[in-house]
């Protein structure tokens, strides 16, 4: 790892000022992706601004049919929150299967979505539930937030402060995990929301996306059999040592049917 200057931010405003003041400064949330990246010398920031001391960014609030999760809330807290389990059980279950216990003890929702790894779990929940990302500058709909591989709608130095999830009528997430890393080879989040059925897919493509054909089929009748024979198109899907594009396309159908069935 190249050396850098470390800053412990005391507030969101302090973090914003420190990031703006650095020549090539980065924000650190839980560090579960940033630190491995720095170790591999894939990045060489001048300054690392640590958000872990900003208490305002932690915590879970349930009110008015929505769950708001502070950006620095760790996965373990979401997974074990009785309030989340009552309001959106699929969200608690998703958080409880990210990485391993030690990753869940440190990794955060804000870090996960700002990084936007194409195989991360949380982007599927945000897009599947039609969540809203709150930053220190504005609110961004999940459908507009994830713009490409490791890319988001966040501007330079913009800080995610929380994510607001509207509680759905029913939702479930099914993941075919990489057996080593537990990242999603394919993960599908299905939700029945007031705005209709949403089917969000992670792991399969360069960025989380919605399977609109499956959403339309489920609008016609919400049952796993409505998706019989349906797969994703293998065009532009990821291909690596773990799975071919065709296999991922097949898995999207399988995971989607399982998720619909789990919605009950």
């Amino acid at each position: 790892m190249h050396d850098f200057t470390y800053h412990a931010a005391s507030s969101v405003a302090d973090a914003a000022a420190k990031v703006a003041g650095g020549e090539d400064a980065v924000l650190m949330a839980g560090g579960m992706t940033l630190l491995p990246t720095l170790k591999q010398r894939l990045a060489q920031p001048s300054d690392v601004v640590d958000l872990s001391g900003v208490a305002d960014l932690r915590g879970i609030r349930v009110e008015g049919g929505a769950v708001t999760v502070g950006a620095m809330t760790v996965h373990d807290a979401v997974a074990n929150s009785p309030e989340v389990a009552a309001a959106i059980p699929a969200l608690a279950a998703l958080a409880g299967h990210i990485g391993d216990p030690q990753v869940r003890n440190r990794g955060t929702i804000g870090g996960s979505i700002a990084n936007n790894d194409p195989a991360a779990d949380y982007p599927a929940a945000l897009v599947g539930l039609g969540a809203t990302v709150c930053t220190d500058r504005r609110e961004i709909a999940a459908d507009e937030f994830f713009t490409g591989m490791f890319e988001t709608a966040l501007d330079e130095g913009e800080i995610v402060t929380s994510v607001r999830f509207p509680a759905p009528a029913a939702a479930a997430y099914m993941k075919f995990p990489n057996p080593a890393s537990r990242y999603a080879i394919v993960g599908v989040f299905v939700a029945r929301t007031t705005g209709g059925v949403r089917v969000a897919v992670t792991g399969a493509a360069s960025c989380v996306y919605r399977e609109s054909a499956m959403e339309a089929a489920l609008e016609g009748g919400f049952s796993a059999s409505a998706l019989d024979g349906m797969t994703a198109s293998a065009d532009d899907l990821n291909e690596d040592i773990h799975a071919s594009a065709e296999y991922r396309a097949h898995l999207v159908g399988v995971m989607a049917r399982r998720a619909v069935a789990a919605c009950g």
Binding site: A8, M32, P36, D100, P101, Q102, V103, N105, R106, S181
Partner: peptide
């Protein structure tokens, strides 16, 4: 951060000490 041989407790919670900075 995969093997867990470096797990310690930080404020009572298990963490992989190869994926934390000492200054944290």
């Amino acid at each position: 951060s995969q093997c867990g041989a470096c797990v310690v407790h930080v404020d009572g919670v298990s963490a992989k000490s190869c994926t934390m900075l000492a200054v944290q």
